[in-house]
């Protein structure tokens, strides 16, 4: 599926929720679906610094696609990481570079991405794009 299709699916999934509690419960469920990140990968190099909750992001480039693995100390942050990885994992650098991230707004999670929250998610999206740019040159 293309990044765009995946985003559309997510927007549709989230549109069924009546209120924020259902949305949060879904994100908490999603947080549990994340692949376990090995502790050795939770190093300073992979740490995305944020005042509120730590986020680690590791990237591997294989067969022309980027493999991301990520984790956070906070569950809601992890839920959003799961959403981001559902969209961006195992995609080519070119697809990632050309993608739009406004779907986060459309599923009603914009507040978690504001730089004010300083939770590392804003930086995580930036970091995903940086990896894509870096691997694109290879």
């Amino acid at each position: 599926m293309t990044i765009e299709n995946l985003q559309e699916n997510l927007i549709e999934d989230f549109s069924f929720f009546d209120d924020w509690t259902q949305k949060y419960e879904y994100m908490i469920e999603l947080s549990k679906t994340l692949d376990k990140m090995d502790d050795s990968l939770k190093n300073d190099e992979n740490l995305i610094k944020g005042c509120q909750s730590k986020v680690w992001l590791n990237a591997d480039f294989k067969d022309g696609k980027i493999n991301f693995i990520a984790d956070s100390e906070a569950i809601i942050t992890k839920g959003i990481i799961a959403i981001l990885l559902m969209v961006f994992n195992n995609k080519t650098p070119d697809e990632i570079i050309k993608s739009d991230v406004s779907f986060i707004e459309k599923i009603g999670l914009k507040e978690h991405l504001s730089p004010n929250r300083a939770n590392g998610l804003y930086s995580m999206i930036k970091q995903i794009k940086f990896y894509a740019i870096a691997y694109n040159k290879k």
Partner: peptide
């Protein structure tokens, strides 16, 4: 078993303003 960010985010949904983090 919980992180302050999660608690703070949910409290905000209830209209309760607290500070979380360091």
């Amino acid at each position: 078993g919980t992180h302050s960010y999660d608690i703070g985010s949910i409290l905000d949904k209830y209209g309760v303003a607290v500070r979380t983090g360091q």
